[in-house]
Structures are given as C-alpha cells and as structure tokens.
C-alpha cells in the first residue's frame, strides 16, 4: 500500500492543472469572444474582424488544444505519481 500523501499531491496537481486550463477556456469563450468582441473587432485577422473570428473560429481551435494539453500533461502526472495503468 502506498501512503496517503502522494495521492493527495497527485490530486492537488491535477486540480491545479484543471484550474489553469479552465481559466484559459473561460477567458477565450466569455472574455475575448463575447465581452471584448466589439472592441476586438477594430483589429483584423487577415481581412476578418478579430472578435468575430475568435467567436466563430479561434475559440474552437483553443478548445481542441486545451483538451490535447490536458491529456498530455496528465500522462506525465500519472507517471510521476505512479498511478498510470500498465
């Protein structure tokens, strides 16, 4: 049996990672894509207003990336705390 504390540490590290990534998620979706979209629309990506582009394209790319980063980071965490399978 492992002692209690490494598992607690694993969970804390996991929750910290989740909190960081969800902050990015929140700012992407509600911050730049909605609340600041009217202001960001004065800038352009290519020839498309930036706020509009973020809301209809950019945010989706960020979401995909966030899940990939989480899966990769958890591979490392699982191995470091020896809770991975096989």
């Amino acid at each position: 049996m492992k002692s209690e504390s490494p598992l607690r540490a694993y969970w804390r590290a996991n929750v910290r990672l989740i909190a960081t990534l969800l902050t990015v998620w929140f700012v992407t979706a509600y911050g730049v894509s909605i609340v600041f979209a009217p202001w960001l629309n004065q800038f352009r990506l290519g020839s498309t207003p930036l706020g509009f582009w973020l809301a209809q394209q950019g945010s989706i790319y960020v979401f995909i990336l966030l899940i990939w980063i989480y899966a990769r980071a958890m591979d490392t965490l699982d191995r470091r705390y020896e809770v991975h399978e096989d």
């Binding site: 998620w25 706020g51 945010s59």
Partner: peptide, 24 residues
C-alpha cells in the same frame, strides 16, 4: 451573423468541461 457563435462555442466548449471534469 456574429450571434451564431452561441451555437458554435456552446456546442464545442462543453467538451473541455467533459474532458477535464467528468469523462476520466
């Protein structure tokens, strides 16, 4: 127009919650 983003973000952003908070 722009307001269509509610469906685009709403129906994709939930997967971040699913992947980080529930599925595993």
């Amino acid at each position: 127009g722009y307001d269509g983003a509610i469906y685009l973000m709403g129906w994709t952003g939930g997967y971040v919650l699913l992947a980080l908070l529930l599925a595993p």
